[in-house]
Each structure stands twice: as C-alpha cells, then as structure tokens.
Design a protein around this nucleic acid. Structure first.
Length: 293
DNA sequence: AGCTCGACCTGCACGC
DNA sequence: TGCGTGCAGGTCGAGC
C-alpha cells in the first residue's frame, strides 16, 4: 500500500488515538514479518506512554516515555485500523458491542488506556516493527542512509541536480532510490515524471542538462512536491486495500494521470499521446511517450 | 562504488 | 472447477 502520502495519512489517523496514551495491552500474534519482532516486544511496550508520532520517509516513529522509539514500516500491504477495545464504554454504563473480530493477518494488537484498539494487519508481511533507543535512532542502519525528505525544505532543483549528477541509471530508478530522495514509490515517481514532462528512461545525470541547466531539475522537484502534497490532502491512494485507520479509502487514485492508465489517452491538453506500460528495473512504469522526453 | 536483479510473501484477476 | 501465470503501493543483499 504505502508510499509517503499513505504513510502520512496513517500517521494522522493514529496520532489522536495514540499520542498521550498508555499502551495497556499489547499482543503480538505473529512474530515473523520481514524482520522478526524484537525479543519481548509486547512486554517492552506494555505500560509505555506514547509521547509523539512522527514520520521519516515511509517510516512511522512512535516516541515512548522510556527513551525508546517504536520504528514501524508498512511494507507493501500493511495497514492499521482503530476501533473501540473489548468492553470499552461508549457512553458511561453502555458497553460497545460493535467491536469487530480479529481478521486474518492481524499481527499486532495494541489497546490503549482509554479503550481504543489499534490493530496492525499485513498480509504479505513485508512490514516490520523495531525498538530503537532515541539516542541511536539517527545512526540506525535503516535511518542513516535515507535521502532528502521530499516535502522538507531541502528538496529543490539544485539539490536534485547535485544528487543525480554522474548517475548512469534512469530517472525512474534514481527517484525510487531511497538514499537519494526518501519517500517516493512506484506510483508517485510515475506521476511526478509525467507532470514534469520527463521520460522515465532518461539518464539521471541528464537532469542537470547542458543548455539550460537546472530547468528540468526544477520542474521535477516542483512536480514531486505538488503530487505528494495533493495526495496527502486526498488521504493517499487506495488501490486494492483501505488505507486510512478509519477504514475509509483515500481518493487520490481518481487523480492519477498515468499510473494504471495503460492504453488510455494522455490527459495533457493537445498531446494526443497514449499512455504506455513498460517494465523497468522489474517494476511497471507508466508514461506518455509523446510528452515525456 | 554504482547498478541490476532475485528474493521475501500473500492474494487476486486472468486465461485455458 | 481447478490450475498456472503474472501482477501488486517495498527493500535488502548478492553479484556483476
């Protein structure tokens, strides 16, 4: 499911249910996700208060009151849902009976002190959770090598040109490389390249150009910001799963201009091209051969 | 060092 | 119906 906009949507959904709350009950139902959960994770989390919930690239970071951080990644198919906990009172004296049963692939269940149940579900099990001490977080192998935060202040044409300089790989592969820019995935790379009018097959190094240096890079940086900002505002994209913690769908998928639009006409006015799908580095690339150069 | 590719895992849509 | 194939929002590590 999740690229940056989906992870940010999940963060915003979890924040009110989690921050300031104590983890009263923690159940790990299946430990073997991409990495095994930390030894005794349930015990180590129980009784902890969550002080903040932030995001770095596609990672969620829950600050705990003991100086540790719960580091979470949703992989391809991870999602959270929030419901009233068992026996939680909706109105004083009236117990909530609408709590749904646990579903297949519900791997972690957290119950907060105020009677909320937060369930992590992940069919493909590419996601994971880790506990890292706050002090060591920035040097953790998963965090240390991450590139620019695309909605942060540093991402602009100049930064992109510098990062891509000398790279012989394609623009598509370079944008997917989390060590350069961190948070983009297959959807938003395709969409950003379309908006910038740049071919996914162009060499990354050519972004700087020779005639009008910086122009392409600036267009690309602006396209990345625009597509991500719009997608966050739309609650992300829901392709095959729900993504919001409420179970509601994001709706940015209705705004895709090339992704999964194979053989449909290019939406750019006057272009007349047809969207094509091609496998690049083992992943589908959607693009318009007429207006992406 | 940079780059490409296979592997990890489940579910679904498709064609025969 | 059942079975095989290909596809899916990610990332790591092996091997050039």
């Amino acid at each position: 499911m999740p690229e940056l906009p989906e992870v940010e949507t999940v963060r915003r959904g979890l924040e009110p249910a989690l921050v300031g709350e104590t983890l009263a009950l923690v159940e790990v139902r299946r430990p073997d996700l991409r990495f095994p959960f930390p030894e005794n994770m349930a015990t180590r989390l129980t009784g902890r208060r969550v002080e903040a919930l932030s995001r770095r690239a596609k990672y969620l970071l829950a600050d705990l009151d003991n100086g540790e951080v719960l580091l979470m990644h949703l992989g391809m198919s991870g999602s959270f849902r929030i419901e009233p906990a068992e026996g939680a009172e909706d109105v004083p004296g009236i117990f909530h009976h609408a709590r749904s049963k646990l579903a297949p692939h519900d791997h972690v269940v957290l119950e907060t002190g105020s009677g909320t149940r937060i369930t992590y579900n992940d069919p493909r099990r590419f996601g994971f959770m880790l506990l890292v001490s706050r002090a060591e977080l920035s040097e953790h192998p998963l965090m240390r090598g991450l590139g620019l935060e695309p909605l942060g202040n540093e991402l602009d044409g100049q930064a992109l040109s510098r990062l891509f300089a000398g790279r012989q790989t394609s623009l598509k592969a370079a944008l997917l490389d989390q060590r350069l820019v961190a948070g983009l995935g297959n959807i938003y790379v395709c969409e950003a390249l379309f908006r910038a009018g740049l071919s996914p097959f162009r060499k990354a190094a050519s972004l700087a150009g020779t005639v009008r240096p910086g122009l392409r890079a600036t267009r690309l940086a602006e396209s990345i910001r625009a597509v991500l900002t719009e997608a966050v505002a739309a609650g992300g994209s829901s392709l095959r799963d729900h993504i919001q913690t409420s179970g509601e769908l994001g709706y940015f998928q209705h705004t895709f201009r090339v992704y999964e639009r194979t053989a449909q006409p290019c939406v750019k006015p006057g272009c007349g091209g047809t969207v094509r799908r091609l496998v690049q580095n083992g992943r589908s690339t959607f693009y318009c051969p007429a207006c992406q150069r």
